[in-house]
Nucleic acid binder design. Structure first.
Length: 261
DNA sequence: CTAGATGTTAAGGT
DNA sequence: CACCTTAACATCTA
């Protein structure tokens, strides 16, 4: 689930109900998700404080406290956020939760525990430490082109490279390439200027569209490939059976008709 | 029962 | 150095 559009949806969700309220409770139910911070440490950093804003870069969510420090969330493959009120309302697989003075709580849910929560005084340090490239929605067409031309490798693996540009994963890279009409194994150094802008535009369009529907794949346009990404799935534009192939270590899907090498 | 699943990282190879 | 592949992590579902 959590690629850029999902995390942007979480960011808005967080901002809608977690700001300007005292944190009264911090419960870490699974210490494995903590990174470079102890449960006690995080508790001390949070209790009695309040959030003032939330930012996103790629697939990371950064929530800022009134003292300008940050709690960082990454959702791995199965993470999400959910508010709830009563103890009985706590969602299954809640690994971490924050209780607010008004009585509502925020749950960080993650079945597979492949995510992280940490704390940082300075965002720039964290971003540098993770070697995170610019956010996919913040990058200008010029920068995209400039950074792309001295790269080698397949289009799909480069879109998914978080140090090249952050926010795109396996699912959305398939969609972007499908909408751009580019084969996932297309060598990027072979792309001409026109194809590079087509790719850039598809990237923007797909990510923005997905954010508009709050990353709910059921509400994506009928011409999107995402709901068809499964064995035997067909192209929503021409009905051809999609090709399933391992690319860049992940299973990708593409249409042999619309995405020629 | 087994394989594979939205991510990141480390390790080894080319 | 840039890139590729594989494995590992934990858990569920097809």
């Amino acid at each position: 689930m959590p690629e850029l559009p999902d995390v942007e949806t979480f960011r808005r969700y967080f901002e809608a109900a977690s700001l300007f309220q005292q944190v009264t409770e911090v419960m870490i139910k699974e210490t494995r998700i903590l990174s470079e911070v102890t449960a006690q440490d995080l508790e001390i950093r949070l209790i009695g404080h309040q959030f003032e804003s939330a930012q996103r870069r790629g697939k990371y969510l950064f929530t800022r406290l009134e003292n300008q420090s940050w709690v960082v969330f990454h959702f791995g493959m199965t993470g999400s956020l959910q508010y709830f009120r009563d103890v009985e309302g706590e969602p299954a697989y809640t690994r971490f939760r924050i209780g607010f003075a008004q009585g509502n709580s925020l749950a960080y849910i993650n079945v597979r525990k492949l995510g992280l929560i940490t704390f940082t005084e300075r965002l720039e340090d964290f971003i540098q430490m993770k070697n995170l490239g610019p956010d996919a929605l913040e990058m200008s067409p010029e920068e995209f082109r400039k950074r792309l031309i001295d790269r080698r490798g397949s289009a799909k693996s480069i879109l998914m490279d978080q140090s090249f540009l952050s926010g795109i994963g396996n699912i959305y890279s398939d969609e972007i390439l499908f909408q751009a009409g580019i084969h996932p194994e297309q060598e990027v150094k072979q792309l001409d200027g026109k194809m590079i802008s087509t790719l850039y535009n598809a990237m923007k369009e797909v990510l923005e569209t997905a954010i508009e529907v709050r990353a709910d794949t059921d509400r994506l346009p009928k011409t999107y490939i995402i709901p068809h990404r499964k064995k035997g799935g067909v192209c929503p534009k021409c009905g051809n059976t999609l090709i399933q192939e391992r690319i860049g270590g992940r299973t990708g899907y593409y249409c042999p008709e619309h995405q020629r090498g």
